[in-house]
Amino acid sequence: MQSQNKLFDDFVKVMNGAAGTIAGMTREANAAMQERAREWIGGLDLVSREEFEAVKAMAVAAREQNEALERRIAALEGGKPAAGGRGKRGAAPKS
């Protein structure tokens, strides 16, 4: 009876070792996949949120300046709209 318990104990030890090995392999695989994802994303030509917000602010300022210049030109020309000018909302004229 003692030999059966020893056999069972050895089997449990082997299974625990296998479970530990599988858990370690899983951790290593996850770490490798995360590193590959970081490398792939790092290789893309993406902008940071700060850069996007800065360019967005520049575009808004340029649009406002353009609209002000259009109004100034219209006033200098005696109130007639500029040829090929844009509408009130900045939409291109329909063809």
Rank of each mutant, 00 (worst) to 15 (best):
D9E: 15
A31F: 04
R72P: 01
A68Q: 10
V47E: 06
S3L: 08
R72C: 09
K56C: 09
L7M: 12
Q65R: 15
Q65H: 13
K13E: 02
A92C: 13
E35A: 12
T21V: 05
A68L: 14
F52L: 09
S95A: 10
E35T: 06
N30Y: 08
R38L: 07
A19F: 09
Q2C: 09
T21I: 07
A23P: 01
I73H: 08
N16G: 03
F8G: 05
R36S: 10
E70R: 15
E35L: 09
A92Y: 10
K80F: 09
Q4A: 10
A19K: 15
A32Q: 05
P81T: 03
V55R: 05
W40G: 05
K6N: 14
T21D: 07
A18C: 00
T21R: 11
D45K: 12
A68R: 14
Q34I: 06
E64Y: 07
A59N: 13
K88C: 05
A92L: 12
A82R: 08
F52K: 08
A31M: 06
Q4Y: 06
W40T: 09
G84Y: 01
I73A: 15
A59G: 11
V47Q: 09
E50D: 14
K56P: 03
Q34H: 07
S95V: 11
G17A: 04
A68E: 06
R89T: 09
N30L: 11
A37H: 08
R36C: 00
A92T: 15
K13H: 02
I22D: 01
A91F: 13
A91V: 07
A75Y: 05
K56A: 10
R72V: 05
N66L: 15
L46N: 04
A62F: 11
E28Y: 06
V47K: 10
G79C: 03
M58S: 15
E77G: 12
K80Y: 12
G17H: 02
A57D: 13
D9K: 06
R72S: 14
Q4S: 10
G85Y: 00
V12H: 00
A23E: 05
G42K: 00
A57F: 05
G20R: 01
G84R: 02
S95P: 06
M1F: 07
N30S: 11
G87C: 04
Q2M: 12
G84L: 01
L7V: 12
M15G: 00
E70W: 07
K13N: 04
A74R: 14
V12Y: 00
A31H: 04
Q34S: 07
V12T: 02
K13G: 06
M33F: 07
K94W: 04
G90Y: 01
R49A: 10
A61C: 09
I73W: 13
E77I: 10
S95G: 12
Q65A: 15
R36H: 06
N16F: 03
A91Q: 13
G24P: 02
